[in-house]
Nucleic acid binder design. Structure first.
Lengths: 347, 347
DNA sequence: TTGTAGGCGTTATCAT
DNA sequence: ATGATAACGCCTACAA
C-alpha cells in the first residue's frame, strides 16, 4: 500500500502539500527548495508560488536526518570576561549563518585549559556540526587545527595567517595598523615609546609587535629592549607593565599597548601615579573596544573589521561544505586607525 | 521484508546497535535514554553499559523528526553595542541548555524596531523552537509576551516582575540595590544627589528610580525634581544628563546613574569640566560591567546575578516543556553592591 | 526534465 | 515490563 501523502492534516505544510498544490512530485519541490538544476523555469515558478501560498518551511530535522548533514556550524571561542571582540564575532557569524541557512552552535571554552583538545573533540563529534569556526585565539592553539583535520571536520580560522596556512583562513593587517599607530606617535615627537606585548598564545601578538619594530626602523629610532614589556591582554597586566615602564630612569613619553584593555590599565596606572594623559604620557591601544571611547581620556586605537572577517570565514566554510571553491580573497582585511585624545588629539 | 537493522556499518552507532548489544528492543533503549518508567533496573543497566561501550549519541535530527520537538530554545535579545549584560545572559543560557540537553538558538534584534513583533513571529514559527527566553528589555516590550501566548510558544522572561506576571518570570531586587546605593551616598554626607533614569522601555528603570526615592524618604531628604534627568542607558545620554545636572545653580555633589554606561558618561563629562571624581563629584552606576572596574576612578555600582537568573529561566522553561512544574522560587535574586573609588573609597 | 522507491534513526502506538 | 511496527518529512539513488 502506498505511503499516505499526508493530506492537509492541519499541521505544518509538508513537501507533499506543496507538490500536490503545484501539481508536481515531491522531488521537484525538493529540487526547487535546494536550488538544484534541471527544473523548468515555468515549473519552478509554480512550485515557488505553492510554497508561498502554503507558507511552507522545510523541516530541518527531516532534512538533516535524510541528508546526514546538520546544517549546524559550530563556533568555538574563548569565553573571556572581555567580550567585545566576541560580540563582533557573534554578529558576523550569525549574519552569515542566517544568510546561508545554517544554524550557529556556540561552544565557549575557558583558557588556559589542559583538556582543551578533548573538549573540542567531544564537541565536534557529539554536536554533529558540519563545520567549525575558530576565531582567535582558539585557532592559534597548538594542535587544534590538527585535531580537526584528523576528525575530518571542516574548519575556518580567523587569526593572523600562519606560515603554512591550512584550510580556510581569514586575517587582517594588524602589523600595518600597529606600524601606523607607532608612526603617528613618532610624528608627534615621541622617540621613547614603550610597548606592551599581548598574550604569547595569540598570533596577533607577534604582528602588533612587528609593526612597532617596523615603525621604529622606518624612522631611524633605535630599539631599546627595556621599553618592551610582556602582557597578557588583561587590564591588570597593562597596569603592571605600565608600572615597570614608568619606573625606568628615563621613562617613555608614550606607551603602546597591544590591546585596549591593557591600554586602559596603562591609563589607569598613570592616573594613580598622578600623571596626566596625554600631557605626561600618550597612550595607544588596539581593537577599538567600547572602553576605548568611554574611558578618560578616550583612547587612540585601531579597529579590526571583525564581523566582516568572521562572515567571510563562515561563507567560505559553507561554500566548502557545498563542494564549491572556498574562493577566499588572499588579501588581508584592513584595520582602521582611530585617533583620539589619549595621544593629544583635541576634538 | 523486515527493515534491515543496520548492522554495524562503520558509521555512528544507532539505537539498533545499542539494542542488539544489550539484547533488548530499540524501544527499551529509547525508554532508558529518555528516562521513562517501566524498565527493570537490571535491564536499564545493561542498556546503559551498551551505550557507554558504543559511545552512542542519539541522533538529534531523528529524534526531532519523530517527536516533533526541536530541543531548541530560542534566545531573543537586543543586540546593543554594550554587550556585557548579554555576555552573562549567554553564559547562563548556554550552561543551562547544555545541562538540559537543549540547543540554544540566538536571535538578535535591533531596537527600536517597528517590525519587532513580525520578526519575533517569524523567528518563533520558522525556527521551530520549543521555547523562548526573553531577557530584558525584550520581555518588557508591549505585545511580545502576548504574541508568544497567541503563538502558543512557551517563554520565560528575565526582567523585573510585572503586576500580573505571565508565564515564567525571573527577576532581582534592583530597587533594593538602588536604595542601598543611594543610602550609602547619603551616609557619606551627600544630600543633593542627582539621578539619571534609564531607558523608559526597560522595566528596571522604574525599579532603580524607586530605590532612589525610597532612600531619600528613609533619610528624610526632600525630593527635588530638578535633580532627576532622563537617560537612555547610553554613555552619551549619561554625558548629556550630567551636563544639565552640573549646570544647576546648586549642582548635586553626587550623581547616581541607572547603569554603568551612563555613569561612565557622567564621569567623562566631569573630567571634561575639570571636576575631580570623587573630590568634587561622587558617581554611582549599576550593573558592574567591565568598564566600571576599568575606568578611572573605578565605579561604585551594583551587580546582578544575571547568569544565574537566566539559568533559572531556562531551567524553568525546560521543566515546563517536560510537563513538570516550573517550580520557580518566587523570591527575587539578590544584587550585590560594589563600593569603589568613585564614591570616595580608597582601597 | 521529472518521478518513484527506499531509507535516514528516532518516537509513538498498540500488542504481548 | 518489553517488543514489533508504523509514522515523521525529507533526500539520495535510480528510472523513465
Amino acid at each position: 500500500m502506498a505511503r499516505r501523502k499526508r493530506e492537509s492534516a492541519g499541521g505544518k505544510p509538508t513537501i507533499f502539500d506543496v507538490a500536490q498544490r503545484a501539481g508536481v512530485s515531491i522531488k521537484t519541490v525538493s529540487r526547487v527548495v535546494n536550488h538544484e538544476d534541471n527544473v523548468r523555469e515555468n515549473t519552478r515558478e509554480r512550485v515557488l508560488a505553492a510554497i508561498a501560498d502554503l507558507d511552507y518551511q522545510p523541516n530541518a530535522a527531516a532534512r538533516g536526518l535524510s541528508s546526514k548533514r546538520s546544517y549546524v556550524i559550530g563556533l568555538i571561542y574563548e569565553n573571556a570576561d572581555e567580550f567585545s571582540y566576541m560580540k563582533h564575532v557573534l554578529d558576523g557569524a550569525l549574519a552569515a549563518c542566517e544568510a546561508q541557512g545554517y544554524t550557529l552552535l556556540l561552544r565557549p571554552l575557558t583558557l588556559p585549559n589542559d583538556e582543551l583538545l578533548a573538549q573540542i573533540r567531544t564537541f565536534a563529534v557529539q554536536a554533529r556540526v558540519d563545520g567549525v569556526v575558530l576565531p582567535a585565539p582558539i585557532g592559534d592553539i597548538d594542535g587544534v587545527v590538527d585535531l580537526l583535520k584528523e576528525l575530518d571536520v571542516p574548519f575556518a580560522t580567523v587569526t593572523p595567517r600562519t606560515p603554512k596556512p591550512e584550510g580556510i583562513n581569514v586575517f587582517c593587517d594588524d602589523a600595518q595598523a600597529s606600524q601606523d599607530l607607532a608612526s603617528y606617535l613618532i610624528e608627534q615627537g615621541h622617540n621613547r615609546i614603550g610597548f606592551i606585548l599581548g598574550h604569547p598564545d595569540h598570533r596577533a601578538t607577534e604582528q602588533r609587535y612587528k609593526g612597532y619594530r617596523q615603525a621604529l626602523k622606518a624612522h631611524g629610532i633605535g630599539y631599546d629592549a627595556a621599553l618592551v614589556r610582556k602582557g597578557l591582554f588583561t587590564f591588570e597586566s597593562g597596569q603592571q607593565a605600565a608600572a615597570k615602564l614608568l619606573s625606568l630612569d628615563t621613562p617613555p613619553t608614550a606607551i603602546m599597548a597591544s590591546n585596549d584593555d591593557m591600554a586602559a590599565g596603562v591609563s589607569f596606572h598613570a592616573h594613580e601615579r598622578g600623571l596626566d594623559v596625554p600631557g605626561d604620557l600618550s597612550v595607544v591601544g588596539f581593537d577599538d573596544t567600547p572602553v576605548a571611547s568611554h574611558m578618560w581620556p578616550p583612547l587612540t586605537t585601531a579597529r579590526q573589521p571583525i564581523s566582516s572577517m568572521v562572515e567571510a570565514a563562515v561563507n567560505g566554510l559553507v561554500r566548502q561544505l557545498r563542494g564549491e571553491e572556498a574562493n577566499l580573497s588572499e588579501a588581508p582585511f584592513h584595520c582602521e586607525v582611530v585617533i583620539r585624545r589619549s595621544t593629544g588629539a583635541t576634538p
